[in-house]
Design a protein around this nucleic acid. Structure first.
Length: 425
RNA sequence: GUGGGCGUAGCGUAGCGGUUAACGCGUCAGGUUGUGGCCCUGAAGAUCGAGGGUUCAAAUCCCUCCGUCCACCCCA
C-alpha cells in the first residue's frame, strides 16, 4: 500500500460520484456565458514564465513563491498558468483581437497551478472559470461582468452570497494614497502585529486586510482610499453602482477590500458566502485592469475580468446542501447465459445503441441472479434476459425493473420496439 | 514558509501496552433446477501511513519522515 503511487500534494482525483457537480457547473457556465454573449477561448496550460512575472507582477506572492516554473529541454523558462488573465491578454495581443470590434468578451475554464500549502478550498491544481472583457473602459462593462457571475450563482441555486465592492482608484492616485497610508502607520509601527510591520514595508494596502486584533482599531481609523477617489474614478464607481442597482444586484461597499494582484485599478469585487466561518471561502473575485495590456507590450487597452474557483463553489454547494441531479445511467441491462446468448447480446446491444438507447451487458461468468443484482444497482430501467431457452425459441425476455414483477417475452426481432415502448411509458 | 489536529480493510469508525485487530456500509458467493430490490448465511479484504526506538510484549508509548486536515501568510 505504502509503495503505491499517490497523487501529488494538493491535487485531486475527481471521482465519478463528484462529476455531477462539475457537469452542473459547466452547464451553468455554458448557459450564462451564452446569455451574455461571451465567447469561449482556450489557452495553453503553460506559458512563458516571463508573461506572469511581468503581467501578474513579480512582487506578488503568486510569482514570488507560488509559480510552478521549469526549464524545458530547450532551456526555455515556462510556468504552469497560475492565473488566466495574463494568458488571455497575451492571446488577445498575439491574435490581433484589438483589430476586431471592441470590446472582446471572453471566457475560459481551465486548471490553474500554484505551489501553496493546501488547505480547505485551496489546492495546488485548481480549476477556474475566468471571464474577461478586453477593450472597454465603460463602467457598465464592470457591472455586466459582476452580473454575469451573480447569475451563475443563481443558476447554481446558491443563496446568501454577498457581493463586496470597492474602488481602488488609478495607479497614480493610489501611489499617493499608499504614501499617506504609510505615513499614518509609520508612527504606530511598533504597536502593530509582526505581520503588519512586515506589510508596512512590502505592501501597505494589505494592512487594511489584517485580522490581527492589535491592528483592527488602527485599521478603522486609517484613511480610506474610497473616500478620496479621483474625480474620474469616483464617477466610474458611481456608474458601476447605479448599473448594479438597475440589474437588481445587491452589494455592500467594502472600503477595506484589497485584492492581491498588482494590476488592478478602479473597480474591485469579491463574492463571499454570508455566515461562512471558513477561511478560504471567497468563491469569485475580480476587477478592472486598464494597464495590464500595456505592461505586456500592447497598446493601452482597458479591461475587466474575474475568476471563480470550481472547487470552492462546490464546497459552498455542499455546505448549502445543493445536490446536483445525478448523471444519466444506462436504460437497459442485458443479462445472458451461455455462449450463444453471449454473442446474441453483443449483437442486440449494438442495435440498441444504434437506436440511442444506452445499455450495458452482464458478465458472462456470473449467474443470472448476480447479473440481475447488478442490473438493479446500475439503475437500468429494463433488463433483457437471453438464455439458452430464448436462443432456441428465438426470443428475449424483457423485464421492467421499476414495477414489481412485470416481464414479457418477445421475438428477438421485436425487442427494440418493445424496449422503446416501455421506456416511453 | 509558520503553528496545531489526525493517519486502523474500498469507505466510515471501535480498540489506545498483553491471546488469531472488532463493527457498520460496500464487494463477492449462496439461501435447490434461469429472475433484482427486503431479509438471512457465508467469504474475501488490514504487513494497524513508513522507518527507527523503548519494552518480556506496541495499532496502542517516544523520535524522524511522508500524507492529510485546520489555521496563519496569500488567494479561487
Amino acid at each position: 500500500m505504502s509503495k503505491q503511487f499517490q497523487k501529488p500534494r494538493g491535487t485531486e482525483d475527481i471521482l465519478p460520484d463528484m462529476q455531477p457537480y462539475w457537469t452542473m457547473i459547466n452547464k451553468s457556465i455554458q448557459e450564462v456565458t451564452t446569455l451574455f454573449g461571451y465567447s469561449r477561448i482556450d489557452t495553453p496550460v503553460f506559458e512563458n514564465a516571463a508573461l506572469f512575472e511581468k503581467g501578474t507582477g513579480d512582487t506578488t506572492d503568486i510569482v514570488e513563491k507560488e509559480m510552478y516554473t521549469f526549464a524545458d529541454r530547450g532551456g526555455d523558462m515556462l510556468a504552469l498558468t497560475p492565473e488566466a488573465t495574463p494568458a488571455l491578454c497575451r492571446s488577445y495581443l498575439e491574435n490581433g483581437m484589438g483589430s476586431q470590434p471592441q470590446p472582446i468578451r471572453l471566457y475560459t475554464t481551465a486548471p490553474m497551478f500554484r505551489y501553496d500549502r493546501p488547505q480547505q478550498g485551496r489546492l495546488r491544481q485548481f480549476t477556474q472559470f475566468d471571464c474577461e472583457v478586453i477593450g472597454s473602459a465603460d463602467p457598465y462593462v464592470d457591472a455586466e461582468l459582476i452580473e454575469l457571475l451573480w447569475r451563475l450563482y443563481e443558476h447554481l441555486e446558491l443563496t446568501d452570497i454577498e457581493l463586496r465592492l470597492s474602488s481602488i482608484d488609478d495607479l497614480t492616485s493610489r501611489k499617493k494614497y499608499i504614501s499617506d497610508l504609510t505615513n499614518y502607520y509609520q508612527p504606530l509601527s511598533n504597536l502593530l502585529s509582526e505581520d503588519s510591520q512586515r506589510r508596512l514595508q512590502s505592501n501597505p494596502l494589505r494592512l487594511l486586510d489584517s485580522k490581527d486584533e492589535r491592528d483592527i482599531s488602527f485599521k478603522e481609523k486609517a484613511p480610506k482610499l474610497i473616500d478620496r477617489l479621483s474625480e474620474e474614478s469616483e464617477q466610474h464607481f458611481t456608474t458601476v453602482k447605479e448599473a448594479l442597482t438597475a440589474a437588481k444586484i445587491p452589494f455592500t461597499i467594502d472600503p477595506l477590500l484589497v485584492r492581491g494582484l498588482d494590476y488592478y485599478n478602479r473597480t474591485v469585487f469579491e463574492f463571499v458566502p454570508k455566515e461562512d466561518e471558513r477561511a478560504q471561502s471567497t468563491i469569485g473575485g475580480g476587477g478592472r485592469y486598464d494597464e495590464l495590456i500595456k505592461i505586456l507590450g500592447g497598446p493601452h487597452t482597458p479591461a475587466v475580468g474575474f475568476a471563480a474557483g470550481f472547487e470552492r463553489i462546490i464546497l459552498e454547494m455542499k455546505r448549502q446542501k445543493k445536490t446536483p441531479s445525478p448523471l444519466d445511467s444506462v436504460n437497459v441491462y442485458i443479462a445472458h447465459l451461455g455462449s450463444k446468448a453471449g454473442k446474441e447480446s453483443v449483437r442486440l446491444a449494438a442495435e440498441l445503441r444504434k437506436n440511442d438507447i444506452a445499455c450495458s451487458i452482464g458478465e458472462s461468468t456470473r449467474s443470472l441472479k448476480a447479473q440481475l443484482r447488478r442490473a438493479n444497482t446500475s439503475g437500468a430501467k429494463i433488463t433483457i434476459i437471453i438464455g439458452e431457452e430464448e436462443i432456441k425459441k428465438g426470443t428475449a425476455v424483457i423485464k421492467s425493473m421499476q414495477t414489481d414483477q412485470s416481464q414479457i417475452e418477445t421475438p428477438i426481432s421485436e425487442t427494440i420496439t418493445e424496449v422503446v415502448k416501455i421506456l416511453n411509458q
